[in-house]
């Protein structure tokens, strides 16, 4: 069996250490070693976007990143999105406008949507739809997800 390696990673501002198998993915590290199960695994092939996280500020599918690749780097997941008592405007607008149903794709969609609004605070509906093309949802039909992102963007621009 291949040798395990020591990985140090900062997740949502907290530093973690773990011993990882060479073939272990970042999503596996997050979920099963660090017990941060908010990030979901939907396909393991980068097609569904459920495992979306930020790696050094870049949106990635954590099923396509090896845990070892995250060594010395910074990861942001859904667990870091709300502060103590305050939901992020995206979370609040998803709650207000029913932008979710079963919730399994929701963490990935929220992370991806935040990444969009950081680079483009005033996206058109079409830009939102194309940005979220890599995040599949079987429950909502996307309509209320798109409304929620648009409402959050408007709120954040006003803030």
């Amino acid at each position: 069996m291949a040798k395990k390696a020591h990985v140090t990673v900062t997740v949502n501002g907290d530093e973690y250490e773990a011993l990882c198998e060479p073939g272990q993915t970042l999503v596996d590290l997050l979920r099963n070693e660090l017990e941060l199960t908010g990030t979901k695994e939907g396909c393991s092939t980068g097609d569904c976007g459920a495992c979306s996280v930020m790696l050094d500020g870049k949106l990635v599918c954590s099923c396509l990143v090896l845990a070892m690749e995250a060594d010395g780097r910074s990861v942001d997941t859904i667990e870091g999105m709300a502060t103590e008592n305050n939901l992020h405007p995206l979370q609040r607008n998803f709650l207000e406008l029913n932008g979710l149903q079963c919730g399994i794709c929701t963490p990935g969609i929220l992370i991806a949507a935040r990444a969009l609004l950081e680079r483009n605070p005033d996206p058109t509906e079409t830009e939102i739809r194309y940005w979220l093309a890599g995040n599949l949802c079987r429950c909502t039909g996307y309509d209320k997800i798109i409304r929620s992102v648009m409402a959050a963007a408007e709120e954040m621009r006003g803030a």
């Binding site: 199960t37 997941t77 667990e79 999105m81 998803f94 709650l95 979710l100 399994i104």
Partner: peptide, 14 residues
Amino acid sequence: DRALLTGGARYVDD
């Protein structure tokens, strides 16, 4: 929704 939106919900694989 609050639990689902914050990553706090527990599904079977969690």
